[in-house]
Design a protein around this nucleic acid. Sequence first.
DNA 1: ACTGGCTCCTGAGGGC
DNA 2: TGCCCTCAGGAGCCAG
Length: 271
Amino acid sequence: MPELPEVETTRRGIAPHLLGARVVEVIVRRRDLRQPVSKSLAAIEGRRITGIRRRAKYLLLEIDDDSTLLIHLGMSGNLRVATAAQPWKSHDHLGITLARGKQLRFHDPRRFGLVLRLTGDLPAHPLLAKLGPEPLEEGFTTAHLAVACAKRSVAIKLVIMDAKVVVGVGNIYASEALFRAGIRPQTMARRLSKPRLAKLVAAIRAVLTEAIADGGTTLRDFLHADGKPGYFKQRLRVYQRTGEPCRVCGTPIRHTVTGQRSTFWCPQCQK
DNA sequence: ACTGGCTCCTGAGGGC
DNA sequence: TGCCCTCAGGAGCCAG
């Protein structure tokens, strides 16, 4: 599924088409996503889209009636800018038609995604209220991560994937960041020294920044708003490279399971 | 308060 | 070819 770089790539792709555009029609073909699509979605018809932000892995479309569309892509979702005339593909669950025939399509085979219309106090919404800092903003510091790791008897990989600690780091970039920081994913969080956590903070920032620059990672479902894939897959150093030589030392990459999720690491480079 | 495990859903890929 | 099993980029919820 889309992690932070894929969601940010999507945001940048759709923004030029959506910003300032008027909504002509909302078409809901399938309502049963992770939560039902908001019944009030049709209320944005005739309204204008005034902003497109990202918080964690959520996209926030700001509407000029002071409501916000909150969109999450789940594991298999993508948004693309099509035309209203284009035929619907299976699992295209929702379309937002804009002026001049453009249409934003929400596509999500597994339906773990979300499309909600929120009104009122946005930061207080239960889906947003407990989120940790953005990894590419100032609030994500070594001191912050150290507090989150203190006394925690879980693998460090699970800590950096915990959205209450830091948002946007999913299963791909968790393995990649830990490789770059030279830390084994299964290391107990409370056993890591401050200098090692500082390396991890820097590694998370670096890997996410590079992935955004490359337009994200396409493994299967993720596509840009224009239908093209992301290219960061070519730069993955450990993810899904079991048995292949480490790009640094040549040792075969290993695979383990941490918290029911696949984990990839180099036994030589990571201690 | 933590921690680990299960769950939602569909499709792809491997083994036999 | 076809069937069955396992696994997949997220994250909320539950029980111990």
